[in-house]
């Protein structure tokens, strides 16, 4: 089934161009579509339109009878949150944005690091050794269906209201995609590469480090990207409940006191941080897998 569908997708009948290169009647639109600047402009049309409609639909700075603030209010709330004077005045958020961003980012980084340090070796072991698969895989598969949100009370009971609680959830959430993708990569190492290494006198550890690990690296990076996304989900959820700082804490706190402008500014901040950290992984991937792109250069 999948085989034929893949083939059909791959062998497009002659005369039918790929969607991206379809002739648009004249060459002018195609130039517009392909240039870098045009791509940025095209990408911005929809978000700008949404923000504009959102802004114009509001009256007196809000929509839906005062529930939803308009974008200009969100921006000014963010400005005060980011650059306002610190202190326990009327606005408790004033000037605390950077500190909260750093709190959350640090937790994601720490939890993510733990997930890598545990998930990659575990995945290599499961994928490479039958014994590893027999010992570890059933446990991983048994625990995996438990959503990380379900671990919250457990985490609170064990670690209390503290950063550890968040780090535990982030590490756990990021661990699953990392271990599963690493397993996939380690399981499908080309047999002749292993044979070649054996023939050249490589020992067991050399095979793991110099053949299985690099061969699995593309899959590992897939796992890292998914894991990091889950890490950001986990940090927000746990900060909403188990920690008294960070973007997730501010998000829930602002909601309780009816500061929807801060809530939305917070949401955007989370999105931007998620995007930036994903770009960081992509950069690392491009560096680590440069040998794959070498042919295209």
């Amino acid at each position: 089934m999948t085989d034929t569908s893949v083939k059909q997708a791959g062998s497009r009948p002659a005369g039918m161009a790929a969607p991206g290169s379809r002739a648009l009647g004249s060459t002018l639109p195609r130039i517009l579509v392909n240039s870098g600047l045009a791509q940025i402009v095209l990408a911005l049309i929809l978000p700008v339109a949404i923000v504009a409609i959102w802004q114009l639909a509001g009256t007196n700075g809000s929509l839906f009878g005062g529930v939803l603030p308009t974008p200009d209010r969100v921006v000014s709330a963010w400005w005060i949150w980011a650059f306002g004077p610190k202190g326990m005045g009327l606005n408790p958020y004033s000037g605390t944005w950077l500190a909260n961003v750093i709190f959350s980012t640090q937790r994601v980084a720490q939890g993510f690091l733990v997930a890598i340090l545990v998930g990659v070796p575990a995945g290599i072991w499961i994928g490479w050794s039958r014994l590893g698969a027999q010992i570890l895989d059933p446990t991983v598969q048994m625990l995996r269906p438990i959503p990380i949100t379900a671990w919250l009370p457990f985490s609170l009971a064990v670690f209390g209201i503290s950063g550890f609680s968040a780090i535990f959830l982030i590490a756990l959430g990021a661990f699953y995609p990392i271990v599963i993708n690493t397993t996939q990569g380690a399981r499908h190492v080309e047999r002749n590469l292993v044979r070649a290494a054996l023939m050249m006198g490589a020992g067991r550890f050399d095979i793991l480090r110099r053949v299985v690990l690099p061969a699995a690296l593309p899959s590992i990076f897939t796992g890292l990207r998914i894991g990091l996304g889950i890490g950001w989900t986990a940090v927000i959820v746990s900060e909403m409940i188990a920690v008294k700082s960070g973007l997730g804490y501010v998000l829930w706190d602002a909601y309780y006191v009816g500061r929807m402008d801060v809530v939305i500014a917070d949401m955007v901040s989370i999105g931007v941080m998620g995007l930036l950290s994903d770009q960081l992984i992509l950069l690392a991937e491009r560096w680590a897998l440069s040998w794959r792109l070498a042919g295209a250069r």
Binding site: E190, N192, L193, R195, A196, A197, L198, M199, M200, G201, A202, R210, V211, P214, A215, L217, L289, W291, R292
Partner: peptide, 28 residues
């Protein structure tokens, strides 16, 4: 067991794609 006394040349070369030509040659 397989070992460097019997050098094998595979049909599809089976080079390590993440190593340069030089690194592949001095791997053994």
């Amino acid at each position: 067991k397989p070992g460097p006394d019997r050098g094998v040349v595979f049909q599809e070369a089976a080079l390590f794609p993440w190593l340069t030509v030089w690194e592949n040659v001095v791997f053994g």
